[in-house]
Amino acid sequence: MSSFDELEQIREQALAELADARTTAALESWEDRYLGRKGEITQRARLVGQLPQEDRPAYGQRVNEIKRLLGQAFEARAEEIKRTELATQLSAEAIDVTLPGRPVIPGHLHLTTQALRELYAIFGKMGFEVYEAPDVELEAYNFDLLNIPEYHPARDMWDTFWVKDTGEESGDRRLLRTHTSPGQMRAMRERCPEPIRVILPGKCYRYEQITVRSEHQFYQLEGLAVGKGITMTDLIGTLTQFARLFYGPDKAVRVRSSYFPFTEPSVELDAACIFCHGAGCAVCKYTGWLELAGAGMVHPVVLANGGYDPDVWSGFAFGPGVERPAMLRYSVEDIRLFYGNDLRFLRRF
C-alpha cells in the first residue's frame, strides 16, 4: 500500500470515527488520536523525509490538505455536540414556573394617609399649601373667635372634650379641637396681611360614643382662601374643580344653602352619588346626592378676628371629609376600622 493510499485510509477512518463521537470527551480523544502532537496525521507528516524525492511535494501537500479538512470536520462536530449537550442540560433544569416566588414583604400606608395625600395633591394643584395647627386647642380659637360664643346654640354642633386644668393657669380653657377650623384663625393671624390659600389637615375629636358610624377621633381637612376679591362663585368653582379631580371629569355637583357659624353665606356642596349616579339609592337616602363638603364665605367677624378688614377682604372656607369619601369609595361600613388598625383592613390599600 502506498503512503498516499495509507493517507486516504486514515482520512476515511478519522472521519468515520468523528461521526461516531457523541461526547466532548470522545471528541477530545479523537483530536488527540489524529490531530494531536502524537496523532496519526502529525506522524504521517514526519514520514515525508523517507519518501522518494519526487513524491515529497505532493505528499506534503496532501497531508496538509487532510489536516485542514479533519480540523474543519472537528470544529463542526464539536459545535454540534456542545449544542446537544447544552440542550440536554437545559431541559434537565426545567422548573415549575407556577411555584410561588420568594416572599418579599411589602409595607402599607394607612388609608387615611393615602386619602390625605390625594387631597394635598388636588388642592396643591390649585395653589393651596398645607398648614398644620395643634390638636389641643384654646377654647377661644376653637369657638369664640370663630363666632361661636359660650352657651351659643351653635356650640351644640360639636360635642367637646375639655382638658382638665392643671391648676396654675390663666383661666383660658383648653379642649381637643372639634374641627380643623381653629387653624383658620391661626393661619390668618400668622399670615395677615398676606392673601391666604391653605389647607388645614388634622386629627379632630368629638365627645361621641364609638359606633360603626361615629368615632371620637377622626381626620378633617379644611381649606381657606382669603383675598381682596374672593367670591362665592370662586368657592363653587374651586370645589367643582375639586370634585372633578377627585371623582372624574363629568361629576355633577350641586350647591345648597347651609349653616355654619363661621361662614356667611354658608353652603353645602353635594356630588352626584357614586353608587346610583343620581338615580337614588339607599346610600344617598334616595336623594341622588352625597355630601362633598361644607363651605361658605368667611364670616366678617372671623375675618376681623383674624386681622383682615371685612370691608376690604373676603374669603371662603370649605371642609371635605377625609374618611367618609374613602369609606364610600371602598364600601367600608365600619369607621372603627380606621383607628382600630385592623391590619387585614389596612393591608388592602
Binding site: P195, K228, I230, T231, T233, I236, G237, L239, Q241
Partner: peptide, 8 residues
C-alpha cells in the same frame, strides 16, 4: 351660580 376660579 356659575363656578369661577380665583382671579387674584
Amino acid at each position: 351660580f356659575p363656578g369661577t376660579l380665583i382671579d387674584e
